[in-house]
């Protein structure tokens, strides 16, 4: 047992180390080249130069946002995959992304400016709809939740297409740009608020890591082991939707992170959610920081949508490991 705990601590420390390295590297990369060795003195001196301002007013908020959003999407992926016992579920499967995108599209054509709020309300609306449709006589039916979520997402994307076909060119551009997802957000108070909500959500979800272990055996089995499954399912669903909804509302739809990172980490640390949740959180942050760094430097000064990088990079890496190290994805 002690051996297990030590192994867990080593994983967490290693990922934190990696996070530091990737974070510093990302800080040094960009159109205005600031050499790696100049960063540490800059942090220490705190001198208000242009370079300092580029680092801490432009790049650092973006890195923090990438860390938070990547962590949020990965944790939600772990929660939903464990709860639904399904390896193909992502944070977006249950209507979060569809609802958010619909909210944003509507507010763009209506001329409403506060897009994160519109996105969050859209996500909240879609997920609540899914929840109430899937609920019968006090029971939350897992299969129904999944199917309803997928259908609501489809309906949302159909309506978005309709809106796009009717909108003017600059509005169309706005909608497309949002849907592609971006971590460019200059509003520091907003980043702080989002980080706070997400961190609290992630902290609460850690308290359910053992319940997720039991739930992955099956609902009746979990009941036999004394888990109050209705309360657990309800809490996890609301928690996951909230974390993902908040993340999507600031960053748009950044795909693949929430689907891939949980599988990756399961490959390395095993299926126990007590270690899977914290390591996925860190790994998701690292992965998104790295992807975003690539996205903004690879054809600099132009920027690629970060979702393109997470898809191509994540997908290929995943297939590589899948074939290299036999991964158990169920049957």
């Amino acid at each position: 047992m002690d051996k297990k705990l030590i192994r867990w601590i080593i994983w967490i420390l290693a990922l934190m180390g990696l996070l530091l390295v990737v974070g510093l590297f990302s800080l040094s990369m960009g159109s205005a080249g600031i050499p790696f060795k100049k960063i540490i003195p800059l942090i220490i001196s705190g001198e208000k130069s242009i370079e300092y301002s580029i680092l801490f007013d432009i790049r650092l908020p973006r890195i923090i946002l990438a860390l938070i959003v990547g962590g949020a999407l990965s944790v939600t992926g772990v929660i939903f995959q464990g709860m639904f016992r399904n390896p193909l579920v992502s944070p977006y499967t249950l209507g979060v992304s569809g609802g958010a995108a619909l909210g944003v599209s509507l507010s763009i054509i209506a001329g409403f400016r506060i897009l994160p709020l519109a996105g969050f309300l859209g996500a909240l609306g879609a997920v609540s709809l899914v929840y109430f449709i899937a609920r019968r006589q006090g029971y939350l039916r897992i299969s129904m939740l999944l199917l309803t979520g997928v259908m609501i997402s489809f309906i949302a994307s159909a309506i978005i297409l309709l809106i796009m076909s009717l909108s003017r060119e600059h509005q169309l551009h706005g909608i497309l740009f949002w849907i592609m997802g971006s971590l460019e957000e200059s509003n520091f108070p907003l980043i702080k608020l989002v980080s706070l909500i997400i961190l609290v959500g992630i902290a609460i979800s850690f308290l359910f890591s053992r319940d997720l272990n039991v739930l992955s055996l099956g609902e009746e089995e979990a009941l036999h082991l004394g888990v109050n499954i209705e309360r657990t399912k309800r809490t996890l669903f609301i928690l996951g939707s909230l974390i993902a909804g908040v993340a999507v509302s600031v960053s748009g739809i950044i795909g693949f992170v929430g689907l891939l990172v949980p599988h990756f980490m399961r490959l390395f640390v095993g299926p126990d959610h007590r270690i899977l949740l914290p390591t996925s959180c860190l790994a998701g942050g690292i992965f998104l920081i790295a992807s975003d760094t690539l996205a903004r430097t690879i054809i600099s000064p132009l920027e690629l949508p970060v979702g393109v990088i997470t898809g191509i990079l994540g997908g290929s890496l995943f297939i590589y490991f899948l074939t290299k190290k036999r991964l158990k994805l169920g049957k």
Partner: peptide
Amino acid sequence: QELFFSYSVRDFILLGRTP
């Protein structure tokens, strides 16, 4: 139930301590 994760025998039995 068909398991989606691969538990070791020991970890699986340990889940019996959940209550």
